[in-house]
């Protein structure tokens, strides 16, 4: 209460950062706890480290894990970019960006190349990431075996002993039912030739970008209270069969705004007659191509 009064009295002089909050919202002890989990996660690529996730001022499923990881990594010099399904301007992205603007008084950007921390929901930016950049994923269900083996104790054992036969059963079922591996997002990967990991629900089109990426990749699952990570330049392979190799497919179209052939596309229904068009899911990539032309 005192803080609130102090804040009100200082109304005219206060900087943009909301002083009733600690820097980047979380208290320092919590950040230290999360940083420890992050360091452990980086040391054991793909291993899920439990952490005591905090209540955040947003509902579970809206990126509470990602926000906690980002908060713990932020310094005053950071420039942050937030994307939701590749877009900078959707509700989730805008609200999280404003959250950090308010609680950390931090610079924000939409340009991938200028960001030092990128928090993402379900995409990896099209533009290649560089060293010293951090990509923070929001993760709904961190356990790749969860849908196959509901007992958490058992999945823990399976990870510890690399008992991953069941993961291929899922792919087997896919091929049997559909003639090809139908899993198109949250496509399981093996990290550093050891742990099988759920890459969060990114399209499998993005899977190859995780491999040998120069940036640090951090994954936060708030509700499930797990953190995992891929350090820079780590081998990440997508699971497959010898006779059904992994295929990072995308819609066979061009972006109808920028004309890109390479980027991942969103399908948009344009009228009631079933007409549709395809546009880049990465809005920043699309805008930059338009500016350059």
């Amino acid at each position: 209460m005192n803080n609130v009064l102090k804040f009100k009295n200082k109304k005219n002089t206060v900087a943009a950062q909301d002083e009733i909050y600690n820097f980047a919202y979380l208290d320092e002890n919590t950040k230290r706890m999360i940083r420890r989990a992050l360091i452990k996660a980086l040391c054991i690529p793909g291993y899920q480290v439990p952490f005591s996730s905090r209540e955040m001022p947003m509902p579970y499923g809206w990126g509470t894990g990602g926000v906690q990881v980002t908060s713990s990594c932020l310094t005053t010099d950071d420039v942050i970019k937030v994307i939701d399904q590749g877009a900078d301007d959707t509700t989730n992205a805008v609200s999280i960006r404003n959250f950090f603007k308010k609680t950390a008084n931090i610079k924000t950007t939409e340009k991938t190349s200028q960001a030092s921390i990128i928090q993402t929901r379900h995409r990896i930016p099209e533009e290649k990431l560089k060293e010293k950049q951090i990509l923070v994923y929001q993760v709904p269900i961190p356990e790749p075996l969860a849908f196959l083996e509901p007992r958490y104790q058992e999945t823990k054992k399976m990870h510890a002993l690399s008992e991953y036969g069941i993961m291929h059963v899922k792919l087997y079922e896919d091929i049997t039912k559909n003639g090809h591996i139908e899993t198109a997002y949250a496509y399981p990967v093996k990290t550093n030739d050891r742990y099988i990991m759920d890459p969060s629900p990114i399209p499998k089109f993005d899977n190859p970008k995780m491999n040998n990426n120069p940036a640090i990749q951090l994954f936060g699952a708030g509700r499930e209270q797990r953190i995992y990570a891929i350090p820079p330049y780590t081998e990440v392979t997508s699971l497959d069969f010898e006779d059904y190799p992994f295929d990072p497919s995308k819609a066979p179209h061009k972006c109808s705004i920028c004309g890109s052939n390479e980027s991942f596309l969103d399908e948009i229904i344009t009228d009631d007659d079933g007409n549709r068009s395809f546009i880049c899911s990465d809005t920043n990539y699309c805008n930059q191509r338009m500016e350059n032309n």
């Binding site: 036969g165 069941i166 049997t176």
Partner: peptide
């Protein structure tokens, strides 16, 4: 078939 295949894949068979 998936049930039968589980043991095979857990010992490393990767050819569908």
């Amino acid at each position: 078939g998936g049930n039968i295949s589980e043991r095979l894949m857990s010992i490393g068979q990767r050819n569908y």
